[in-house]
Nucleic acid binder design. Structure first.
Length: 204
DNA sequence: GCGACGATCATCT
DNA sequence: GATGATCGTCGCG
């Protein structure tokens, strides 16, 4: 089943980030279907989070979509080259979001390989936020898209059950060293899944 | 108008 | 594990 808007509009963004693990991300772009299981996410908790674009209620043209009601995409470009896929969560104006960091490819693998270029090993096709956006054909123009119908981008629950023991948490990647937000364990990933991207050393 | 810097990746040693 | 690529966005004034 497609995850409904209510899945995303919950106020507890950490739960949304964890619950997205094991779900299936799909895009249908250029008449091509691609999909895979989400194995790694990061939570960005609105105005209180120094690692978030919306820290201190900063509101600009770029991050305006973060203030939308949960259930839409938030896309932006990082390092001038990489498009990043986030899912907006919470109520309107709460500015929470979850970054999708890695997916285990399942559907349309040949299409992903075409988009990423040959010579990319399967393990790296969708491992890392920039890589996965490219494999799924997502660009900044897909910012603010509704995810609650099988239209362009959506996420499905296909019945995968994960236990608490399958889910690990760690500090988030790439934030520089501004404590305490650098080491707060708001990155979640499926333990022992080889499609998880390289991040900071896992803390048990 | 301009300078600095990133929620990264692939390639090289 | 070090490094270069590469450019939109922000903040300054």
């Amino acid at each position: 089943m497609i995850l409904p808007k209510e899945f995303y509009t919950r106020e507890d963004t950490l739960s949304v980030a964890k619950d997205l693990l094991g779900k299936y991300l799909f895009t249908a772009l250029d008449g091509k279907l691609t999909g895979g299981m989400i194995v790694e996410t990061e939570a960005y908790i609105g105005p209180l989070d120094a690692g978030s674009h919306a820290f201190n209620n900063r509101r600009t043209t770029r991050n305006e979509t973060m203030y939308a009601e949960g259930g839409v995409t938030y896309m932006y470009i990082c390092y001038g080259i990489h498009d990043m896929l986030n899912v907006v969560t919470g109520a309107k104006d709460s500015s929470h979001a979850v970054l999708i960091r890695a997916v285990e490819p399942r559907v349309g693998i040949d299409i992903m390989q075409q988009r990423r270029g040959e010579n990319i090993p399967l393990k790296r096709l969708c491992s890392g936020p920039g890589a996965l956006a490219r494999a799924f054909g997502l660009k900044k123009i897909h910012d603010g898209m509704d995810m609650s119908s099988r239209n362009t981008i959506w996420i499905e629950d296909q019945g995968t059950i994960l236990s608490e023991a399958d889910i690990k948490a760690s500090g988030r990647v790439g934030l520089g060293c501004s404590e305490p937000y650098f080491s707060i364990p708001w990155r979640f990933y499926i333990d022992r899944n080889s499609f998880v991207s390289r991040g900071p050393k896992a803390k048990s």
